[in-house]
C-alpha cells in the first residue's frame, strides 16, 4: 500500500483508539463524578465565587440559553474592543501592529466568539501578541467550552426522567474549559514546543538569506494557540498560512498529532453520549453514520489528489506523487487531503494546504462536509446538529411504520420537529442567500474586484466563504479579496446566526423532552440503535444536503470538474 495512505490510516486509527477513553472521561466530567482532574475544583470554586455564580443551582433551558448568550456577548465585546485599540496597548506588541478597521474588527470578533475563526487578516501583520493570546487564544477556549457545555445540557435533558432542570450552563462551561480543553491543550502545546513551534514574546527576527537578502521571520507565542486551535475545532492560525507554516506545523509527526487533535474531541463526544446515557450500541451506530459521512468524501478526495491533474499531464509533466500544486510539499497530497476533510467535517477550519488548489471535486467534498456539518462537527455543536437530524429521522421513521415517534423513551411531537426542521433549513438559507447576494453584487458592480478567479472557480470561492461562515468552519478557499465592508459584515452576520440558533434550538428541544414522562421501551418502540435506523438518519442527512446544495455545486466545482475531464 502507498505509504501516504498508511499514514492516513494510522491517523484515523489512533484517533478512534483515543476517542473512546476520552469519551468515558468526558461523560464522568458531565455527570460530576470523580475524575483525575478534581484538583481543579478549588480554582473553579474561586472563579464562581468571584463571579457570584452558584454552579449548583438548577436551570431550565431558557435560563441556560440566556446564560450562554450573556457570556458570549461578553466574549464579543472583549474581542472587538481589544482589536480596535491593540495599537494603544503598551505591552506585548513588539512588532507595533496597528488597530483593525471597524468592520474587520467586527468580523474577527464575531469569528472567534462563534468558534469559526474565519480570518480576514494575516496573523503576522494584523494581530499583536496580546491579541493573539488574550483575545484569540482565550476565545478559542471559551467558544469551544460553550459548544461542549451546550451539548452536556442536551445529554442531561435526554437522560432525565421528568424535570425542567437541564443542569447549570456556567458549571458545565467552566468544567469543559478546565477539565477537558485545558489539560489536553497543555499536553499538545508542550509537544509542539519540543517539535519546533515557537513560544516567545520577542519581536520578529531579521535574518540574512544565503543570497544575501534581508528577510523578516515572524515569530511569537504560537505553541499554545496552535494547540487549542486544533483541539477546540477553532482553526484560527497564528500565522497567515495557518498549518502550512513550518512554525505551526513543523514536520510529519506534528502533522499527525495535529490531525488527531482536530478529530479527537468531536469523536470523543459521540462516545461520551453513549457512556452518559449508558447506550453504547446507539453511540456506535451514530459513530458509524458519522464515519461513513466522513469516509466517502475522503475517498473521493484521495482518489483525485493522488491521480494528478490532467491539465498538468497535458503539459507533459509527470505526477508520480499525485497532484502537488497547492498541496503541502512536506506532507504530500494524501496527508493534505486527510487534513482538508478532517478540518471541514469538524468545523475546525485550519489548513495545511491551499483549498483553492484542490482538485475541483475534492473542493466539492470539502464543501459537502460543511453542507452536512454534522459528521463529528465542531466540538459540541457538531453533535447538536446531528441531534436535529436524529429528531427528524425519528419522526420520518415513525411515520413510515405507523408508530408514534419516540426516542430514548421520550415522545417526539410536532413542536420538536418544527424547531429541528427550521434549524436544518437555516444553514442552506444562510449559505445560498449569501452566495446569491454576492454573485448579484459582483455582476452589478464590475469594479468591486474581490474575485481573483473568473468563472466557475470564482463562484466556488464565494460559495465556500459563506458555507465556511455558516458552518462556523473558518477555512477559506482563498483567492477571494475578503477584507471588504461587504464580506466582513455579511460573513459576520451569517456566522452569528449559524452559531447561536443551532445551539439555542437543541437546548429548547432538550428542555421540552426533559419535561416529558419517560416511557420504558416496549415492542412498539422504534429501535434507534439498529443499523436500519442509522441508515435512515444517514439518508436524511444526505438528502437534505443534496437537495439544498446540488444546484450550486453544479455551478461551481462540478462545472469546473467537467471542464477538466471533458
Amino acid at each position: 500500500m502507498n505509504t501516504e495512505l498508511i499514514g492516513v490510516l494510522f491517523i484515523l486509527l489512533v484517533t478512534v483508539a483515543l476517542a473512546s477513553p476520552l469519551g468515558r472521561y468526558v461523560s464522568r466530567v458531565f455527570k460530576g463524578e470523580r475524575t483525575l482532574l478534581d484538583f481543579m475544583a478549588p480554582l473553579e470554586r474561586f472563579i464562581f465565587r468571584m463571579s457570584r455564580i452558584d454552579p449548583n443551582s438548577p436551570m431550565d433551558w431558557k435560563q441556560n440559553a440566556w446564560a450562554m448568550i450573556k457570556l458570549n456577548v461578553f466574549f464579543f465585546a472583549w474581542a472587538i474592543i481589544i482589536l480596535l485599540v491593540q495599537s494603544w496597548l503598551p505591552f506585548w506588541n513588539p512588532n507595533h501592529i496597528g488597530g483593525m478597521s471597524l468592520t474587520q474588527a467586527f468580523h474577527t470578533a464575531v469569528s472567534f466568539a462563534t468558534n469559526t475563526n474565519q480570518q480576514h487578516y494575516l496573523g503576522e501583520t494584523g494581530a499583536s501578541y496580546f491579541t493573539q493570546l488574550l483575545v484569540f487564544g482565550y476565545l478559542q477556549f471559551v467558544s469551544a467550552g460553550t459548544g461542549i457545555a451546550a451539548l452536556a445540557l442536551v445529554f442531561k435533558g435526554l437522560s432525565s426522567k421528568q424535570t425542567t432542570d437541564l443542569g447549570n450552563f456556567y458549571n458545565l462551561f467552566l468544567k469543559s474549559c478546565t477539565r477537558i480543553l485545558l489539560p489536553l491543550a497543555i499536553i499538545l502545546a508542550i509537544f509542539l514546543l519540543f517539535m519546533g513551534t515557537p513560544d516567545t514574546f520577542q519581536a520578529n527576527a531579521t535574518i540574512t538569506t544565503l543570497e544575501g537578502h534581508t528577510q523578516t521571520v515572524a515569530t511569537g507565542p504560537a505553541a499554545p494557540m496552535v494547540a487549542i486551535k486544533q483541539l477546540g475545532t477553532n482553526g484560527g492560525g497564528f500565522f497567515g498560512v495557518n498549518s502550512a507554516h513550518p512554525f505551526e506545523n513543523p514536520n510529519y509527526v506534528t502533522n499527525i498529532a495535529e490531525n488527531v487533535a482536530i478529530l479527537l474531541i468531536p469523536m470523543a463526544l459521540v462516545f461520551a453520549f453513549g457512556f452518559y446515557l449508558e447506550r453504547m450500541k446507539l453511540a456506535w451506530i451514530i459513530f458509524g453514520v458519522m464515519m461513513l459521512g466522513f469516509l466517502i468524501p475522503l475517498g473521493v478526495g484521495l482518489h483525485y489528489e493522488l491521480h494528478g491533474n490532467p491539465a498538468i499531464t497535458k503539459m507533459g509533466v509527470q505526477q508520480p506523487t499525485g497532484y502537488m500544486e497547492g498541496n503541502e510539499v512536506r506532507f504530500g497530497p494524501a496527508a493534505t487531503t486527510l487534513w482538508a476533510m478532517s478540518t471541514t467535517t469538524t468545523s475546525n477550519g485550519s489548513v495545511n494546504g491551499m483549498h483553492d488548489s484542490l482538485m475541483p471535486l475534492t473542493g466539492a467534498m470539502a464543501m459537502l462536509n460543511m453542507f452536512m456539518n454534522c459528521n463529528f462537527g465542531g466540538v459540541g455543536v457538531g453533535f447538536l446538529n446531528f441531534f436535529l437530524f436524529l429528531i427528524v429521522a425519528v419522526f420520518i421513521a415513525g411515520l413510515m411504520i405507523g408508530r408514534t415517534p419516540e426516542w430514548l423513551g421520550k415522545k417526539i411531537e410536532g413542536r420538536e420537529v418544527t424547531i429541528a426542521a427550521l434549524l436544518i433549513i437555516l444553514h442552506p438559507l444562510l449559505v445560498l442567500s449569501g452566495t446569491a447576494l454576492s454573485t448579484w453584487l459582483i455582476t452589478l458592480h464590475s469594479n468591486w474586484d474581490w474575485l481573483n478567479n473568473p468563472g466557475f472557480h470564482g463562484f466556488s470561492e464565494m460559495l465556500y466563504e459563506f458555507t465556511s461562515a455558516s458552518a462556523n468552519n473558518g477555512s477559506g478557499f482563498e483567492g477571494l479579496i475578503d477584507n471588504t465592508v461587504f464580506w466582513n459584515l455579511s460573513c459576520g452576520f451569517v456566522m452569528l446566526l449559524g452559531r447561536y440558533l443551532p445551539i439555542i434550538g437543541p437546548m429548547a428541544i432538550a428542555g421540552s423532552l426533559a419535561s416529558k414522562k419517560k416511557t420504558p421501551d416496549s415492542a412498539g418502540t422504534l429501535p434507534s440503535d439498529s443499523l436500519a435506523f442509522g441508515l435512515i438518519t444517514f439518508a436524511v442527512i444526505v438528502f437534505v444536503a443534496a437537495l439544498s446544495f446540488f444546484p450550486v455545486l453544479t455551478m461551481g466545482p462540478i462545472a469546473e470538474h467537467v471542464s477538466l475531464f471533458p
Binding site: K62, I69, L102, T103, F106, L489, G492, L496, G505, A508
Partner: peptide, 30 residues
C-alpha cells in the same frame, strides 16, 4: 456610514438571536 452599517448588522443579528429564545418557547408552548 460604515459605523452605521456595522451597528445595523449587529443589532439585527442580536434581535434574531434573542428573539429565537422567545420564538422557540412559543413553539414549545403551542
Amino acid at each position: 456610514m460604515t459605523i452605521l452599517y456595522t451597528l445595523l448588522v449587529l443589532a439585527w443579528a442580536i434581535v434574531l438571536i434573542v428573539g429565537s429564545v422567545t420564538f422557540f418557547d412559543k413553539i414549545l408552548k403551542r
